[in-house]
Computed example of a mutant assay.
Amino acid sequence: MSLPVYRFAPSPNGHLHLGHAYSAILNYEAAQKYSGRFLLRIEDIDTARCTPKLQANMLEDLQWLGIKWETPVRRQSGHFEEYAKALQKLDTMGLVYKAYLTRAQIKRFVAEQDKRGTPWARDPDGAPLYPGDHNMLSQQEQADLYKIEAPYALRLNMAKAIEMVGIPLFWQEAHGGKIEAAPAAWGDVVLARKDTPTSYHLSVVLDDALQGVTHVLRGRDLYDATSVHRLLQTLLNLPEPCYEHHDLILGDDGRKLSKSAKDTSLRELRANGMTPSQIKKRLHL
């Protein structure tokens, strides 16, 4: 029997907070408990925001917590060609299209629908489903945008993808049994952009497969996204790991911790004299 493989895959676009510490420790200790492997993956698709300094700080914080990982560390920025090949495979299957609507145009379209009393559907994260260029742009406008190579997103034709794989799809949730996936709730998700050859959804399923990850232990905020990941795994003929979505570490206001909101970082807690054992105690670990 092969050893279980766990991973922690943060994005170095800010400093780690208690929520990251919780997920990292859970994965590391699960790998130790089951005599498995623990991998660290750097999700640095956004090469502008994911700076070398933030990455170095992140590694230092994890080492301070007592976490050890296998080397070399996989950095997504070094594997864009692999993601591009997977995207090309989906494109060859007729499942990818260029989408030109901007966020402002989508917002305007949704507002118009709401005003008419026909609220537009939203995905599990609350974002409006992509309405399709044809709802706002004429064929000539679409042709002109194509001609001038305007910015675009490469989106998955969700309806066609679901038809191709067949429904239902399931994933195995540890302590939760078989869960039926509902990828349609996400609409035509972004797989890449003109200037970025991949997205979180595409890269995460490919990375997990290429690294042999058997157990994906991550936050509850990604529970619904697993539906998209199971669809992509099926389309790309990738292995299916076992999933477990842990509770989130919340702030005093009941909101999940966030780097963008500048919630208290591990570095600040360290500077204030907190020890790794105190961090674990605070996280009830």
Rank of each mutant, 00 (worst) to 15 (best):
S265P: 13
S11D: 10
K160P: 06
Y34G: 00
V110K: 10
A84F: 08
Y34R: 13
G66N: 13
P52V: 07
V110W: 09
W171H: 07
I179S: 07
L26D: 04
P168C: 04
L217T: 00
D123S: 06
T264N: 08
V213A: 07
P168I: 03
S138C: 04
S227L: 09
N157H: 15
T71M: 12
P131S: 14
Q139K: 12
L39R: 13
G94D: 12
K281A: 15
Y83P: 08
F8G: 10
L235P: 06
L269V: 10
Q139A: 10
I249F: 12
H20V: 03
R108S: 15
G273C: 09
V110D: 08
R74K: 06
A261Q: 14
P183N: 03
R74T: 13
K280Q: 07
H15W: 12
D207P: 01
A182G: 04
R267M: 05
I42N: 07
Q233L: 02
H215F: 06
P183C: 01
H245T: 06
K53C: 00
K89Q: 14
R218M: 11
P119L: 00
R230P: 01
A225L: 05
R255G: 00
D91Q: 09
H15A: 11
E173R: 00
A143G: 03
F8S: 13
E112Y: 06
C242M: 14
C50H: 08
P241G: 05
G36Y: 02
L250Q: 02
G212E: 14
D46M: 02
E163Y: 09
D263P: 03
T198A: 15
P168N: 03
Q211S: 07
R122Y: 05
L206E: 01
D252K: 15
A31L: 04
D221L: 12
A111H: 02
L236T: 05
K33P: 02
R7H: 12
A56N: 03
T226G: 03
D253C: 03
L16E: 13
R75W: 12
D188C: 02
L257D: 04
P4I: 09
R116A: 12
T214G: 04
M58Y: 02
D114L: 01
L285P: 02
R193W: 00
P131G: 14
N157Y: 12
A30F: 11
L232K: 00
L59E: 14
A31K: 01
M93R: 11
L285W: 14
A111Q: 11
L269K: 13
H201R: 09
L65G: 14
L145N: 00
P239N: 12
A159Y: 11
D208Q: 08
I279R: 02
R270W: 08
A261I: 03
G251A: 11
V190N: 04
P124F: 05
E141K: 10
G14N: 05
E43S: 12
P183D: 02
R218N: 13
